[in-house]
């Protein structure tokens, strides 16, 4: 009996000790707040290297931007660059939380811009990228030449049976890309009463593979596509006219949109802290600005000629010093 009481007392002391230790630990660590939105990636700035984390989106144009920026940051400014693939909307979230430092090509996300740039001020604009983007519906040129009236949306239903595939069933197929892209296609098909089924290829690469296979056999197809895009040089395509874009139409809820996509000057964004403390890297990314043709040169090397992004960037940088010299901060 005596032994038991001693044991319980010992346990109690031990528990008290543990509690005291825990409380002590908490006070030492500050009992403070740990703000999740200010935690950088554990892989950043390892071993005192200055590092920059760029977000890459899944389309080739974005890859071209990141590749050239990465090459110049590494070889001209001496940074270590990590690239992380994040989809568009989560990239805004990650940018605001400092998980990535920069987005180099944004196709317009007014909701996120309002939240993070205007309200929370965790993200700042880094100016335009120099390229203007446009999303639309396209058919191959060989098909449009034979049937010129397909280029008006009012005639699309006439061609639904021609554009049918196993995947779209009884309707015509509207080939769509990655679920992450800015798209109103489901709403458009419904609101314009089109006899079509949007089929999501899942990724841009799958979509390109599919388009090329169609083109090889000269089969007709209708696809969601955008400019600037290097694929136009390989498979010439013509845009189908949708009801014209208006501000009122764009203001409607997503499910009720019934007009064409806008023309968007593509934007760059930086994390607010990175903009202040990022030194030359931040300044360089602000200066980064090129044209549609220049971007397409790099994109085509990557996607068509099968070069690695790094090799393509190297080649382009060596051939166009006059363009990028202006980006390097003094």
């Amino acid at each position: 009996m005596a032994r038991v009481t001693r044991r319980t007392r010992m346990t109690r002391t031990r528990v008290l000790c543990a509690l005291a230790a825990a409380v002590g630990l908490l006070t030492v660590t500050g009992c403070g707040a740990a703000d999740m939105t200010k935690q950088t990636s554990p892989f950043a700035n390892a071993q005192g290297a200055k590092s920059v984390t760029l977000s890459v989106q899944s389309w080739v144009g974005s890859e071209a931007n990141a590749a050239v920026a990465q090459y110049l940051l590494e070889h001209e400014l001496g940074y270590h660059v990590d690239t992380v693939q994040v989809d568009e909307v989560p990239a805004w979230d990650a940018l605001s939380q400092d998980r990535v430092d920069a987005i180099l090509e944004d196709w317009g996300h007014p909701q996120q811009e309002q939240l993070y740039v205007q309200n929370k001020k965790t993200i700042v604009s880094a100016g335009g990228e120099g390229v203007t983007g446009h999303i639309g519906w396209y058919v191959p040129k060989y098909f449009a030449d034979q049937h010129p009236d397909v280029l008006d949306w009012r005639n699309l239903n006439k061609y639904a049976s021609v554009l049918r595939t196993p995947e779209s069933g009884s309707k015509g197929q509207l080939l769509d890309g990655s679920p992450s892209y800015v798209t109103n296609d489901k709403a458009l098909v419904k609101n314009l009463h089109l006899d079509y089924q949007p089929v999501f290829a899942g990724s841009e690469a799958a979509q390109i593979t599919q388009i090329k296979q169609f083109a090889k056999e000269k089969k007709p197809f209708l696809t969601y596509w955008y400019e600037p895009q290097w694929l136009f040089n390989v498979v010439p395509m013509v845009e189908v006219k949708l009801p014209p874009y208006t501000a009122q139409c764009a203001a409607k809820p997503a499910a009720e949109i019934d007009c064409a996509y806008p023309t968007t000057p593509l934007q760059k964004y930086l994390n607010a802290d990175f903009e202040k403390k990022g030194g030359k890297a931040a300044q360089f990314l602000k200066n980064f600005r090129w044209t549609k043709d220049e971007q397409n040169q790099v994109s085509q090397m990557i996607a068509q000629d099968g070069m690695s992004a790094d090799a393509a960037a190297k080649k382009w940088v060596e051939e166009h010093p006059d363009v990028w010299r202006a980006w390097i901060p003094k």
Partner: peptide, 21 residues
Amino acid sequence: GGMVGGGALGYNVVYGLAQGD
């Protein structure tokens, strides 16, 4: 498979992640 055009539930998960929806 939602990432290669499988559609259905997989697509919705990918979509949810991709669009932050």
